[in-house]
Design a protein around this nucleic acid. Sequence first.
DNA 1: ATTATATCCTGATCGC
DNA 2: TGCGATCAGGATATAA
Length: 268
Amino acid sequence: MPELPEVETVARQLAPLSVGRKARRLVVRDGKLAGAARRSLGGRRLESVFRLGKQVVFQFEDGAGERWLAVHLRMTGRLLWRADGEPVPEAPAPRAELAFEGGAIDFVDPRRFGTMTWLARLDEARPKGIDPTAPEFTLAALGRLAADSRQELKTFLLRQDRLVGVGNIYASEILNRARLDPRRVAGSLDEAELRRLHGATRAVLAAAIRACGTTFSDFQDAHGLTGRYQAKLRVYGREGEPCRRCGAPIVRFEQGGRSTYFCPACAE
DNA sequence: ATTATATCCTGATCGC
DNA sequence: TGCGATCAGGATATAA
C-alpha cells in the first residue's frame, strides 16, 4: 500500500498529535512482532516522528534501551491516532499499540507484512538509495544511478537501493508524466529524457504528498481518512480507459511480475 | 549483475 | 448467494 507520499502523510500527521507526549508502553498483540515488545518505555518523551525511506520512525528521548522505533507499513499497514477514551478498533485488531499519555497510535495491518523494529542507531534503518524529495536528488545524481543500469525503467524505479520510496503506483505515474516507455532501458536515456524523468519524479511525488497520498484500495492516513491523489492518477488502474492527454486507451502489462500501466501513444 | 520464483499473509473482488 | 481463483500499493531470499 504505502509508498513515499503515503508514508510522508502519516508521519506528518502523527507528529503534531504525538510529539512531546510521554510514552507509556508498547503493547504488542501479534506474535510476529514479538521482537519489538517492551514492558515499559519508562515515560520517555517522543521527540519526533519522521519518514525515512518508506518507514515511519519514532524518535524518543535518550534513555534506557534503543531510541528509535522504525515501522514499515509494507502493503496494508496503517498507523492510526486514537485519543484516550476512544475504543480500540476491532477487526482487524491492531497488531501493536504505542500508548502515550493522552492517546495511542494503533498499528493496524491486516496482511501482517509490516515490520516494527527498535534501533540503537538510526543508521541501521537508513536506506541505501537516494530520497527523491531530498536536495541530493539532482539530475546528475539520477544520471549516475541510471548510467550503469540495463534494467527497464519501471523496475529500475522500484529498486529501493537506487531511489527510495517509489512504488508500483507512482512508478507508472512518473513514467507517464515523463512520456517514457516503461520498457526502455534505464541506462539508455539521453540528457533530455533524464531531465524529464527527474522532473516527473519530483513533480508526481510532490503533488501526491500535497494530496495526502493515494487511496487505491485501503490506504488510510493517521486520522483514518483516504488520500486524494487517486483522482489525479493518469494511468494506474485505468486499463482500457482513455488517456487524459491524448485519448488513446491505457494499456496494462506485467513487468517483473507486477502491473505496469502506460499510454503507448504518449510514451515516445 | 539481473531475472524469475517462491514466500510472507489476509481480504476484496471477479467469474461462474 | 456461494465458491474457488485471482489479485493487491512491498520486500527478501534463493535459485537460475
